[in-house]
């Protein structure tokens, strides 16, 4: 199955709105939300069937058995993550689950074998697979392991094995671990850029990150009319970086209305919707052509 990943670097550029519209236009049989930290795609999708939810386990976490603990403090001294709290009044050591990274150094050093490494639910993996396949997840607050969860979200789609031609993936913001996991293995990236100086700064960082993986990229500018000069600058960046420019989308208050009605922008009659349709045609053309060359 081919994967089209929608990325933006900066948050709030309209990545999920565009992903929702693309899924609708493509009548996509499979799609996923890799923004596991703040998933939103499900809010604009009509999901009739029941979701299959399963726990996602991250790294094991340390647990101190208070009956065995002699309060020697060796664990705290050696924890590089400052994840062990000491209550002086009670002379008691406990693990801060938000700090513990599961390295097991404390378990190794504890002279009384009072520390065990226990399984830890770091989030939920969610899969709808009746008609369309929709894979998403929710990371627990303050959890690490977001990269692995992203990979699991993508794996859920692939493992359904229904001979579906392609999937559309809403990526995560930033340039860190979850983004790298989102990019790994995809066939094309659609970048959603915003013509603001922040947007351009973030765009350059995401381009550098994606270049690392040698995945072909195409780019669209959303809300291009908030600053047409900067929009031109982004088009120039595309030429310089040899990224195919697939069109621009105007700012449209109706997009907000659509989102709040839990519709996609292409479900209502609006300028943004019409522009997205053109962007979609160009993108899919390149995406599917790209496929034939394989």
């Amino acid at each position: 199955m081919k994967e089209l990943l929608i990325l933006s670097g900066k948050g709030g550029t309209g990545k999920t709105t565009i992903a929702g519209a693309f899924i609708k236009l493509a009548q996509a049989q499979a799609f996923a939300d890799c923004d596991v930290d703040a998933p939103n795609l499900h809010l604009s999708m009509e999901l009739k069937d029941e979701a299959k939810v399963k726990d996602f386990y991250g790294m094991d976490k340390a647990y101190i058995n208070q009956d065995k603990c002699i309060s020697c403090g060796i664990c705290k001294e050696n924890c590089k993550f400052e994840a062990i709290n000491y209550d002086g009044d009670k002379n008691k050591y406990t693990i801060n689950p938000y700090g513990c990274e599961g390295c097991s150094v404390c378990q190794f050093l504890c002279p009384e074998d009072a520390i065990s490494m226990e399984k830890d639910v770091a989030g939920q993996l969610i899969l709808y697979d009746k008609e369309q396949i929709f894979s998403t997840a929710k990371l627990k607050m303050g959890s690490g392991n977001s990269g692995l969860l992203v990979s699991e979200v993508k794996k859920q789609v692939k493992s359904t094995n229904r001979g579906i031609e392609f999937s559309i993936i809403d990526g995560s913001p930033g340039i860190g671990c979850p983004v790298i996991a989102s990019i790994t293995g995809v066939d094309m990236i659609l970048l959603v850029a915003e013509p603001t100086i922040s947007g351009i700064s973030d765009l350059m960082r995401i381009i550098d990150t994606a270049n690392h993986f040698k995945v072909p990229m195409v780019l669209t500018i959303n809300k291009y009319d908030i600053n047409e000069d900067l929009s031109k600058k982004i088009e120039a960046i595309c030429r310089e970086k040899e990224i195919d420019f697939v069109g621009k989308i105007p700012y449209d208050k109706k997009a907000v209305e659509a989102v709040n009605k839990r519709l996609t922008v292409v479900d209502i009659d609006c300028q943004a919707g019409k522009s997205i349709k053109k962007v979609f045609d160009k993108t899919m053309n390149l995406f599917l052509k790209n496929k034939e060359n394989e």
Binding site: D37, A38, G142, P173, G174
Partner: peptide, 10 residues
Amino acid sequence: APPGSACTTM
């Protein structure tokens, strides 16, 4: 702060 609610935000 960074967006989201992951460890860096915390």
